[in-house]
Design a protein around this nucleic acid. Sequence first.
DNA 1: CTAGATTGATCCGGCCGCGAAACGTTTGCG
DNA 2: CGCAAACGTTTCGCGGCCGGATCAATCTAG
Lengths: 116, 116
Amino acid sequence: MPVELGTRQALALWHAALVAGVRDEGPDLTARQLALLLSVYLDPAPHTVRGLAATLKVSKPAVTRALDRLGQLGLLRRRRDEADRRNVLVERTVKGSVFLNDLGERIVRAARELPP
Amino acid sequence: MPVELGTRQALALWHAALVAGVRDEGPDLTARQLALLLSVYLDPAPHTVRGLAATLKVSKPAVTRALDRLGQLGLLRRRRDEADRRNVLVERTVKGSVFLNDLGERIVRAARELPP
DNA sequence: CTAGATTGATCCGGCCGCGAAACGTTTGCG
DNA sequence: CGCAAACGTTTCGCGGCCGGATCAATCTAG
């Protein structure tokens, strides 16, 4: 089941999912915060602040703040790297998995109802 | 060519497009602003402030501010409704069309490079 | 012609994210 | 051992977005 998508369909999909997200107003995440969250859950571990900053081409303080926010929401967790205590490892949580699963299903639902 | 999408693929697509957007840092729009812009371009005209606020379930000042920002970027335009001068009609611009076309192509590109 | 309703903009106090710079901690290297 | 480098955090001032209340302009009903 390949994913073939025209530009117009792509925009319609983005629109539908975006409007759905804006409406029910969950945690209200920034594009950066959501991108960071998805990187943690979809890219292979381990995840450090510096690595995430490089991946997203964003300053380190921005990553720290995003981690503050996402951690406070319980969507991910920080842990000291005991091997090299300078590092902070970012880990997934059950709540984050649930949140992203919901997001994914919302996108899938939006895709299913696309005009042909 | 239907669009079939699993939850994981949906998240991967969202991730790829979101990261691409965060990286090259175009105008840096809020989720609300982008949703509003897409509504103007994809939903049938006419578009009023009140209508857009209802569509997105957002306060009127929020819509006004989003229109300020998007108008200042040249992505859309305000025009007084001459029939009922209380209304403001929101219209598309060439620049906005180009911007959304780029966004659509970025999403399509991200979809094309999804892991199978 | 006037009173009330409707529409969009503006004012207000508050909150949040931004990048640059300085900081404290930890590590590795001479 | 001592010192520079690496890592993540904190501080700083700044600017943007937030919703509720209010405003001026406009339309409509009586």
